[in-house]
Nucleic acid binder design. Structure first.
Lengths: 231, 231
DNA sequence: TCGCCTCAAAGATATGACGTATTCAAGTAG
DNA sequence: CTACTTGAATACGTCATATCTTTGAGGCGA
């Protein structure tokens, strides 16, 4: 879903290093140094730097070098940046930010989904809710995660709002990160799963208000759990 | 806030052309052709293309060329993409999407702002509310727009959530676009301005619930007005 | 001390050569 | 006639090198 040839190798090294704070704001890198360090040509370095520049992680200036930019300017919505930060030191802050965002967006998306979802999407949501129940009972964490991500992404997509839809990827990153770093109960909570079924039902029935409220409960629960785990 | 040397020239041409749908999905561009068309070297073309690729507007494949990607994959949160789309054919769709997003996010941000804003930010909000009143009375549309953008950006920033804060830029683009394309009443509505003052008051007083509700009313109003204007 | 000037450092751009994956089609076997 | 193989053409990918342009810093003079 994301790599790009040889510059990708640089990105995979530099991105996490910057996003994790290992290379703090103000650090200057020189293009020539990067060429040597990674044994690649100027072309490759420049293109990798261009991409980082596009995310506002660095800025390149003549006679100065490539400077790591302040965190406040970063493209925090870029899925790549999100993953890098989730893997690094400020994972807690990142998870909290994303939690608030989800709390704002997902209920609204659920309401819209109840109004605008296609029949296909409604069916899919119901099916996913069933899958969630089953994989939870079987304690198949990997499959559970997959379906959970799919469920939330489907709701967001069904909202028929392209911007909400794009947050599906973001929410996926959160859920993956949460599982990967063992920030959720090993046994998925039955209550949360019931709520997912209810969202599916509400969307199928076109009950916007109920879909919204139920989704809010889900995300609030996730956020509360997160705060508990992070202190 | 955004250009970049010579590749920027290419971006300024290709970006809008793609975002506006002038170059539909599936269109293939060849690097050599772009070199000639813009009279620049491969280096420059490659870097510009890399940036577009980073936004998922195009994908570059060997033996095929540079292909315009489906809209569904675009980085719809990238401020550059937003501006390009606002300037082009699907401005209505873009404005509607952004409207829904604002409706989800800004009330939540206002509530958080009421809890977490610094004294400085609270003062700033009050001051901006006053400015809004005055510039509206003076019918100084440019200054009004500036302060309006600043107001909303300040609320988002004061939420102490980096992701909300980043949407300040996005909201700014919407407001600018709306004014630029004459999608709002020439004389700002007194009622909307009163609401801004009330948000400022609520945030100053730490009344999260009132801040949230009032902000919701503001954004709902904007969205309603938009729908009216767009049919 | 202040301001201007010069120089050099580092990125920005241009260019030519070569590598490599991919597609398309010709050719061949079944 | 179909299906598979193979080869060549193509367009991007990478490298190496040369030159241009900007800009920061130190020096020089008023």
């Amino acid at each position: 879903m994301e790599i790009q040839g040889l510059p990708g190798r640089l990105l995979a090294e530099l991105g996490p290093a910057i996003a994790s704070g290992e290379l703090p704001e103000g650090t200057v890198l020189r293009a020539e140094e990067l060429e040597e360090r990674f044994g690649v040509s100027r072309t490759v370095v420049r293109e990798a730097v261009r991409i980082l520049e596009g995310m506002h992680l660095v800025a390149s200036r003549r006679r100065v070098g490539i400077t790591v930019q302040p965190k406040s300017g970063w493209d925090v919505f870029d899925p790549m940046v999100i993953r890098w930060r989730l893997a690094g030191a400020d994972r807690p802050a990142q998870l909290r930010s994303l939690g608030s965002l989800r709390l704002a967006v997902e209920p609204a998306a659920a309401a819209l989904a109840a109004r605008h979802a296609t029949d296909d999407e409604r069916r899919r949501l119901s099916a996913l809710a069933v899958e969630l129940t089953m994989t939870a009972r079987a304690a198949d964490l990997a499959a559970f995660l997959r379906h959970d991500i799919d469920f939330h992404a489907t709701v967001l997509r069904a909202s028929r709002n392209e911007m909400f839809a794009h947050l599906g990827e973001t929410v996926g990153a959160v859920l993956t990160g949460r599982t990967e770093y063992h920030l959720m109960p090993h046994q998925p909570e039955p209550y949360a799963i019931r709520l997912h079924r209810e969202v599916a039902e509400a969307v199928c029935a076109g009950e916007a208000e109920r879909a919204e409220q139920t989704m809010r409960t889900i995300v609030e629960g996730a956020l509360a759990e997160l705060n508990e785990q992070l202190g």
